[in-house]
Nucleic acid binder design. Structure first.
Lengths: 308, 308
DNA sequence: TCGAACTATGACAATAGTTGACGTAATTAA
DNA sequence: TTAATTACGTCAACTATTGTCATAGTTCGA
């Protein structure tokens, strides 16, 4: 049976220092024999202890996998299950075991009325988000490798076919239903998609001086930028206001700095607004947008007489 | 001391049925006296039990607010803290107390090495999402009212100014950085934005036959639909594959049913693909897209000579 | 009004679990 | 080798839990 002393013992050993049975016995005011029996018990319930016998020996615990219990109140529990609902939209979440632990084990241990409330939340709360259908089962492994700054080997399928690749992942990020992996390969940082990676495995090589993804993202933000100014129609402005890409300064005009490399990407984005936006600056973006529009319109050229 | 039987007893009583000491004793295979002692103990530690004495009496528990503790292992805890990072992007999460409980209290009770790992996750994991800047502090209250099918009173600021409004909220949903509230006002279901609601308070009136948000959303989905078929270029198909709106059946073709009312909306969406998509069906959508393209192109008409 | 079906509580012995004391063996560092 | 240590078995002492019995009070319904 788990009593207070055994719990405390577990936590003391978690500090990863070494303790002799005598020290522990004195600390708790019990006999050494009792301590030994406690340690026995802890081992049987799975706490990873080990002992060094002989002079200078003692007991230690491996980095412990048993966390202290989390005691929530009802509204915190409700919040947790709402969070779980949000999680449903993010497929292949790393360390995703938490999902089933909460949904199955913890849920069933809750009081009945709390369960009812949780069930009812589902009727009244939703998160609308593009959920990817493409599975990316290796996210946990990739994240682990990034945290250990360890090299990965994987098969990567791109338009050119499948290639076995090795790279150091910087981290993992989720955007619009997709997991992306910036990774260092041969001195260059490339962006991989996690769902196109297969047979991922960690290699032995590590690179301690590897930058973190956080640093990389910051650096990406610092690239050369171009002044862009857009003019929306009143309707376009209303649409744009609900799109957080554009923080409108005045009602119908947007000004901002955009990395030079992203102009083609921005041009495609602006297509969405069709006639509701006009590019004032820079000319390069003007012609990109105009070019795309012309190409698109050509597809419908022979419809002209019908629609006009 | 809390043992398994007492915990189980607590959960059984939580179901809010009534049990006699005899029933419980038989269930656990112990004597009635033991059950009574257990109940005594549970009361001393604060479980809100009460007994009805006399014939037809028995023991009950008040709806219990003491949740059982949640015991996670390390990787589940890591998952939980990643989940917390995702939560950072959703402002004004209802029942948001969970956030600080986890970030402050639970975090500090974890073993050292787990804390380190959690800290490092932040360097290697990100969720990229448009985070709204507009605060919507009333989400918990709105959700509660929806679950209780209770009328709300609030000040709503729209383009026409601020109006005091009363309505029955069906629920709450989050999309692209904004909380939305479908609500029944005078027989019609309107869509409010939570960030534009102020001074929200629950009124006494309830409407038990009010539909849930889930039902409402389903109904929205069930409107009359039209067969749409799209033809993508290979490049367009690649782009579309990352957009979960389109589940491609073959590599470069999309077929689906779309509510008739949403064709104009879909037309605007398709603009995004510019030259990479062609509408095959229905003709109505074809002409909508063509029309938008023509309008848009006119803005750049005098640039033609430069770009061609 | 009575008796059956309950809870509430105390006393005490029987049972089960925990602890301490002691012994013995094995391992290890100095 | 010796001292410090883990490992573990045995048994008696101690402590906690449980069952049995007794008694008293409340409530319901015949």
């Amino acid at each position: 049976m788990m009593n207070g002393r055994r719990l405390a013992l577990m936590q003391i050993l978690d500090s990863r220092k070494k303790y002799t049975a005598r020290e522990l016995a004195e600390r708790f005011g019990v006999s050494m024999r009792t301590i030994q029996r406690d340690l026995d018990y802890l081992q049987t319930i799975g706490v990873p202890l080990y002992a060094e016998v002989g002079a200078g020996g003692g007991y230690r615990a491996l980095p412990n996998r048993l966390m202290p219990p989390l005691q929530l109140n009802q509204s915190e529990a409700l919040g947790l299950f709402m969070l779980l609902q949000l999680l449903e939209l993010v497929p292949d979440f790393p360390y995703g075991e938490i999902r089933s632990h909460l949904a199955d084990h913890y849920y069933s241990s809750l009081p009945l009325d709390t369960k009812e409330q949780i069930d009812r939340i589902g009727d009244h709360l939703a998160f609308i988000q593009r959920a990817a259908v493409i599975p990316a089962p290796w996210t946990t492994l990739i994240l682990e490798a990034a945290m250990e700054k360890r090299r990965l080997s994987f098969d990567y399928s791109s338009s050119g076919g499948i290639k076995i690749t090795q790279a150091f992942p910087l981290g993992l990020y989720y955007e619009q239903g997709c997991w992306y992996v910036p990774a260092l390969k041969d001195e260059r940082t490339l962006l991989y998609r996690a769902d196109r990676m297969h047979n991922v495995c960690k290699l032995d090589a590590t690179l301690p001086e590897l930058q973190t993804m956080k640093e990389w993202m910051k650096q990406e933000d610092d690239r050369e930028r171009v002044q862009v100014s857009l003019q929306f129609t009143p309707f376009g402005a209303r649409v744009a206001q609900t799109d957080p890409d554009y923080d409108l300064i005045t009602d119908d005009r947007w000004e901002g700095l955009v990395p030079h490399q992203e102009l083609p990407f921005l041009a495609r984005k602006l297509l969405r607004f069709g006639p509701e936006v006009r590019v004032l600056q820079p000319p390069a973006l003007r012609s990109l947008v105009a070019g795309l529009l012309r190409q698109a319109a050509e597809q419908y050229a022979h419809d002209e007489d019908v629609t006009s």
